[in-house]
Design a protein around this nucleic acid. Structure first.
Lengths: 341, 341
DNA sequence: GTTGAGTTTGAAAGCGCTTTGAATGCACAG
DNA sequence: CTGTGCATTCAAAGCGCTTTCAAACTCAAC
């Protein structure tokens, strides 16, 4: 059933039917009702391609997921997209997903822009001095960055969590608990959040008079295996840390494993604070969650990012929105005062 | 730059330019070259909406991800989609992603069909007696199921791993190692793979003369927390299992945790075999992987599923393809003979 | 009875492509 | 020179919508 057939059914022109369905004011209320009724009855939906062509809007948002060199797909993308998708479906947008090898997203962006496949883009996994920002600015395609660039000083829309503050507070808490040697199991150095978290950690160390020790800081993809390996090495060292700050739930499972392997117990012997993206399958909740955490729902970030992007599209002349979300510090079972010997 | 402008530039008609770019034979070779050159120079790409409207094909595939009642998003979707996406990008298709609350995907499918947004659909997470199959058959939308229904006997395209055989073999291996009490940490009962895995497990028990014990079988979402809880309970019971068969890497991390908490060691004391989807962030590789596993790359399944779907679209009258992938049994460090007391 | 404003509807153009059917030009046979 | 076949090109229609502009109708005011 298309518009022509539907309007024929109703004995009306395509114009009127179209207007009725799109809530234009100049349609008689009774007519509109009749049209909407019929549309429902025949399960009529405007052809997406035709609408897009006629309006010049794609009715779709592009999400381009970077696949990094080690082929690790960050599972938080799924969760973020789940949030964004929620926004799109209420607003009648579709979500176009594209995976691109990290560093060669250009072709994908250019393609989406040239083919007019999307009205805007969510940029995932920003990297230090990310060339995607100037590229998209050049293409004139609205976008929202999930995260921030560290160096780019131009105006662009972003949503991020306050990584610095979260890691500052977490580090401070560990220091206040008496921990002197606090390890940082962080993400890939190319990711901008990594630098911010590190900087929050370093500031807190300095403020509490602790010495920063590069040998306590690890940077790699946030996998369980990497968390395990880093923590194992550290715990086997001469002067092992008594606390860990871990950038993801996934890595923390590896850290926990290493702690147990070293015949230590999580909490009493070794404190751990994780950053918790509140992933649906990574339960760290309950009255006393397993891990003390700085928590911020990445799904909510997805919802908000999508809303921001749609608002930019609807309102291209408004100033570009930015949003900084604070993480909540949640006290769980994995932290405690440093054991005195 | 659109077709009109490009053809004007070239002093040719839109017809000829279109044909040249789409490799129609009736274009002079020299002209074609000139056109392609110009298209590249001006970065011309046909407008996706217009092409779609003119050809009647959407140039897009829909992936509808079910979000279950506990809101757990299965992380393997990401990997599967990463695979599928690879296929699409080489074939010029786009991927439209949609999340839908489990059980109410109907509206999403109907919408995609009515709006002609996609040429086909990948059905994720098939459930027992899945009503999506007849629905899509009714809508006339080509689809490929990732998995199989257990009951539906009509013809449909699917790709699946041989869950029965994988779990049969894994169970058999554990039995051969002398284990008498083998626990099964399985997925949500509504998922069809759960039943198949269970049936492989039960068959192997029977064949090896072991008694099936319902109290050793757990069914729930494949999260770390669920794995931990199930294994903890089992290990604390009067007659605890000496081996575990675990449906996912994620659950296995919980099981491992429970084993360590019980002051047992993985491998020597308690054997564990997992099903390993070969997720990029769930490393279980190396010479001797941590876990003995039945392994099958879900990313490869995504690649193949997409290829199958595109072939159905290109060739609607051919018989519907199906594909059964075998999992590889990988011996890792988590299995060993049952300890004699 | 005419006018003008306001309400409601419709014809037709246009979005950017593909594709049909026709036209053009040219080589070559008769 | 005419006719035929082939290679190459083009004008125009059409895909299914939205939107402009014009038309028709109603009704109150003069």
């Amino acid at each position: 059933m298309n518009l022509k057939q539907l309007s024929h059914q109703l004995g009306l022109s395509q114009t009127t039917v179209s207007r009725a369905l799109n809530n234009y004011p100049e349609v008689n209320a009774a007519t509109r009702e009749r049209v909407k009724q019929a549309a429902k009855e025949f399960n009529y939906r405007p052809n997406a391609r035709a609408t897009g062509l006629a309006t010049g809007r794609a009715g779709a948002i592009g999400h381009v997921i970077p696949v990094n060199s080690s082929e690790v797909l960050n599972p938080i993308f799924t969760e973020f997209i789940a949030g964004a998708s929620q926004t799109y479906s209420t607003q009648g947008y579709e979500l176009i997903l594209s995976l691109a090898p990290e560093g060669s997203e250009d072709a994908v962006y250019r393609q989406l822009a040239a083919r007019k496949s999307v009205d805007g883009i969510i940029v995932h996994g920003p990297r230090v001095n990310d060339h995607r920002i100037p590229l998209l600015q050049g293409l004139g395609l609205p976008f929202v960055l999930h995260g921030r660039d560290t160096t780019n000083s131009t105006e662009y829309a972003w949503i991020d969590i306050n990584n610095r503050r979260a890691f500052f507070q977490a580090t401070k808490l560990l220091a206040d608990l008496g921990h002197k040697r606090i390890a940082l199991i962080n993400g890939d150095v190319a990711q901008t959040f990594t630098a911010r978290r590190r900087s929050g950690y370093l500031d807190a160390l300095q403020q509490t008079g602790l010495r920063a020790d590069e040998s306590l800081m690890f940077h790699s993809d946030l996998t369980e295996a990497n968390g395990y390996q880093a923590a194992s090495e550290l715990l086997a060292s001469e002067d092992p840390p008594t606390a860990f700050l871990v950038s993801s739930y996934m890595s923390a499972l590896g850290v926990r494993h290493a702690i147990h392997n070293a015949r230590l117990s999580l909490g009493p012997d070794v404190s751990v604070i994780i950053h918790d993206d509140d992933l649906s399958y990574g339960h760290n909740s309950g009255d006393i969650p397993q891990f003390t955490a700085t928590r911020s729902s990445v799904k909510d970030a997805g919802i908000l990012a999508a809303e921001m992007l749609l608002s930019i599209i609807d309102n291209p002349d408004a100033p570009l929105p930015t949003k900084l979300l604070e993480a909540n510090l949640i006290i769980g079972a994995s932290t405690g005062p440093r054991k005195q010997h």
